[in-house]
Design a protein around this nucleic acid. Structure first.
Length: 561
RNA sequence: GGCCCCAUCGUCUAGCCUGGUCUAGGACACCUCCCUUUCACGGAGGUAACGAGGGUUCGAAUCCCUCUGGGGUCACCA
C-alpha cells in the first residue's frame, strides 16, 4: 500500500458492546481510510486470557454495522440485511490465533540480543516497585544481568516461568503524532517492558507492532491513553526493522461532570441511588440476592444490562447511555450518532455541523482533530436527533419506528393493529425526539381500561376544576360528564367527527374554548395532561375504551377534594 | 510524585499555523416575547468566552516565557 492508499485499523479488546469513545475512534479511522481510497481493518486484541472470550466477545460488531461502519478486513460478520463483511488475506484477525507469529518475532529479538528472558516473580517485582516508591523515583525495569544456565535450570525445575523483556536501551525517543504534535521522552523513560507474558501470549505492545506491520497499517488512530506507549512501539519497530505508521491520538470523551465517560457509569448511578435510599436488599423482581451481594460487595463488579435496567426502573433513575447499543435502545438514529460523535473532536470548519458519513469521509483529516477532551453533551445530541426526525418523511419515520418497536417495543406491535400503529406514527412524529418517544410516552395505550391510573397532580386538578369556585362556571369535570354523553351518541368515531361534535359542544357550553373540554378528555383517556393531539388519541384508544375510561375518570375525580 | 500533552461562551466548536477585516462567528442549552386544545414543534429577540501575569510588536485570541488549571502515562490490561 502506498501513501495514497492508507490502511487504518480499529483494534479493540473483545467486548459485547461498543463504547461511544471506541465508536468515534472507529468512525475516524474508517473515514480516514475510506476517504482516501484505502482499507479499514478490524482486529481483535484478545491477548489477555483472563478476560473471557466467549461468543459475545465480538458483539460490538453489530454496533459498528448499525452505525454504517463497514470493514474491509477483519472478523467475518453477516449483517441483518444479509450482506457479509470481514475476512481478508491477513488473518487471523484475532490475536489469540496468531501466537506462532508473535513467537517467531520474539525469538528473533532474543537471538539478536534485543530481548531477554526475565525470571522475576511477582513478589520480587513488587519489592522493586516499593523500593522505587520509597526513594520517590519512578520504577523502571532494567536488565539485571545474565542468568546462568544453572539458575535457569533451577527456575524451570521450580516451575517458574519467564517473561520476555525488550531491551529498550536508555535513549530519548521522539514520538511523532499528527494530532498532538511531537513529544520527546527523555532517555531512560522507557524501561525494559515485557513483550511476552508468562503464559506465552504477547503483550499488547508487541502484538500491536507486529500486526500493524503485517497487516500493512499505515495510519493508527487510537485513544490518547496510548500516547506515551507509542515510544515503546517505535523502539520495537526499529528493533524489528518495521515501517512506522503515522500516529494520531484522540482525546478522551468526558461526562458533563468532567469524569471520564466509562462503562461503569451505569453502575455508578445505581449505586448512588441505592445508597441514597438506604436499600439493603434488591427490590423484588430486579436482580437475584446473589447478584446483588456480589455487586454491592465490589465496586468493580458490573450488573448485566437487563438487571441494571430492571433495577433502574425500580429505583426510578435514568441510566446514562454509554454504549452505542444504549443510544440505539433509546431511539437515536445511527446517522445522527455518527454526526454528533464526529463533532466531538473534529469539525469541518465553515460553521458546518450537520453532515453524514459520506461527507465525513470526504472531509476528514487529522489536521482538524481537536487536542482537547470533549464533554459529551446529550442535550445537543437529542436536539440533533429531534431535527433529523422532524425532517424525516412520514413513511420513513413510520418504517424506522416499526423497526425500533420490533426490537425494543414488541408489546406495541402486538397490541396495535396496522391502522392504529400508523396513526400513532403520524400523531407522534412532530413531537418525537427519538424513535422511542412514540412508545415511551404513550404507555396508556397498552394498559387495560380498568387499570389506567389517573395522575393526581396540579395540572390534572386544574383542568378538572377540582376545588374551583362554583361561580367560575362549569368545571372541567362537568364538561367531561357532558362530553361523555356527546361522545356516546356520535355516529362516526373519527377525528373529524369528534372534533366537530366537540366544537359544537364548546361553542354552546364552554365559550368556544375547546381546551376546557379537551384537557379533561385527555386526562380521562390517557391518565395525564400530556398525550398526542386529543382527537388522534381518542381514535387510538377507541370508542369503547374511551367511554369506559371517561366513566372511571368521572368516578375517580368526583372523590377528589 | 516523575515524564508527556493541552487551554476560546455553561457545552461542542470557528478563528490561531500565514498577527490587523475579531467591539471573537455558529450550534446546543438558557432568558424574554409570539404561536398554541396538552406536550412538543415553530417564529422573533437576548445574555454569554479568548484562564492569569509578563514580554515581542505600531497592533495579539493569534508569536514567546512564567504561573495556574485540566488530561494522559508510569502492569506479565489493552
Amino acid at each position: 500500500m502506498t501513501a495514497t492508499h492508507p490502511v487504518t485499523r480499529f483494534a479493540p479488546s473483545p467486548s459485547g458492546h461498543l463504547h461511544v469513545g471506541g465508536a468515534r475512534t472507529a468512525l475516524f479511522s474508517w473515514a480516514f481510510a475510506k476517504g482516501r481510497g484505502g482499507k479499514f481493518i478490524i482486529r481483535i486484541e484478545d491477548t489477555d486470557q483472563k478476560r473471557s472470550s466467549d461468543a459475545a466477545s465480538v458483539g460490538f460488531l453489530k454496533d459498528l454495522e448499525w452505525l454504517g461502519i463497514r470493514w474491509d478486513e477483519g472478523p467475518e460478520y453477516t449483517a441483518p440485511d444479509g450482506s457479509r463483511v470481514g475476512g481478508g488475506p491477513n488473518g487471523s484477525y484475532f490475536q489469540s490465533e496468531r501466537l506462532e507469529i508473535y513467537n517467531r518475532y520474539c525469538q528473533k529479538l532474543i537471538d539478536e540480543g534485543k530481548a531477554y528472558e526475565a525470571w522475576d516473580s511477582a513478589e520480587e517485582l513488587e519489592a522493586m516497585r516499593k523500593e522505587a516508591t520509597a526513594q520517590k523515583v519512578a520504577f523502571r525495569y532494567r536488565f539485571r544481568g545474565p542468568v546462568s544456565a544453572e539458575d535457569r535450570a533451577r527456575f524451570i525445575a521450580e516451575g517458574r516461568q519467564a517473561v520476555v523483556r525488550f531491551r529498550s536501551g536508555e535513549v530519548a525517543v521522539t514520538i511523532k503524532d499528527e494530532v498532538l504534535g511531537d513529544a520527546t521522552l527523555p532517555a531512560g523513560e522507557v524501561d525494559d517492558f515485557v513483550i511476552r507474558k508468562k503464559d506465552g501470549f504477547p503483550t499488547y505492545h508487541f502484538a500491536v507492532v507486529v500486526d500493524d506491520e503485517l497487516m500493512g497499517v499505515t495510519h493508527v488512530l487510537r485513544a490518547q491513553e496510548h500516547f506515551t506507549n507509542t515510544a515503546k512501539h517505535m523502539l520495537l519497530q526499529d528493533a524489528l526493522g518495521f515501517r512506522r505508521p503515522v500516529y494520531g491520538h484522540l482525546s478522551i470523551i468526558k461526562n458533563p461532570d468532567d469524569s471520564k465517560m466509562s462503562k461503569r457509569d451505569k453502575d455508578k448511578v445505581l449505586r448512588k441511588a441505592v445508597k441514597e435510599k438506604g436499600l439493603a436488599t434488591p427490590p423484588a423482581g430486579t436482580v437475584t440476592a446473589e447478584e446483588w451481594a456480589r455487586w454491592i460487595g465490589d465496586d468493580n463488579v458490573q450488573l448485566d444490562l437487563e438487571g441494571a435496567i430492571r433495577l433502574a426502573e425500580a429505583l426510578k433513575v435514568q441510566l446514562p447511555e454509554i454504549n452505542v447499543d444504549d443510544f440505539r435502545r433509546s431511539g437515536y438514529l445511527p446517522e445522527v450518532l455518527c454526526n454528533f460523535l464526529a463533532l466531538n473532536g473534529w469539525s469541518p470548519g465553515h460553521d458546518i455541523e450537520k453532515f453524514d458519513n459520506e461527507f465525513l469521509k470526504e472531509r476528514f483529516g487529522l489536521d482538524r482533530v481537536m487536542k482537547t477532551p470533549a464533554k459529551f453533551d446529550r442535550v445537543k445530541l437529542l436536539a440533533f436527533n429531534t431535527d433529523a426526525i422532524t425532517g424525516m418523511k412520514p413513511e420513513d419515520f413510520a418504517r424506522r419506528c416499526r423497526e425500533h418497536a420490533r426490537q425494543f417495543r414488541a408489546d406495541f406491535l402486538a397490541r396495535l393493529d396496522d391502522a392504529r400503529f400508523a396513526l400513532l406514527m403520524t400523531a407522534c412524529q412532530e413531537r418525537s425526539k427519538t424513535l422511542d418517544d412514540p412508545f415511551k410516552s404513550n404507555g396508556f395505550l397498552l394498559v387495560a381500561d380498568g387499570a389506567l391510573a389517573f395522575s393526581d397532580d396540579k395540572n390534572v386538578r386544574k383542568a378538572l376544576g377540582i376545588g374551583a369556585a362554583p361561580e367560575a362556571g362549569p368545571t372541567g369535570l362537568a364538561h367531561l360528564r357532558a362530553m361523555r354523553g356527546v361522545l356516546a351518541g356520535i355516529s362516526e368515531w373519527t377525528q373529524a367527527a369528534l372534533e366537530a361534535a366537540a366544537t359544537d359542544y364548546s361553542n354552546a357550553h364552554a365559550g368556544g374554548k375547546i381546551g376546557a373540554l379537551a384537557q379533561p378528555l385527555r386526562i380521562a383517556v390517557s391518565g395525564s395532561t400530556v398525550s398526542p393531539p386529543i382527537w388522534d388519541t381518542l381514535v387510538l384508544v377507541g370508542r369503547e375504551s374511551a367511554l369506559a375510561r371517561i366513566d372511571r375518570c368521572v368516578a375517580w375525580a368526583s372523590e377528589l377534594r
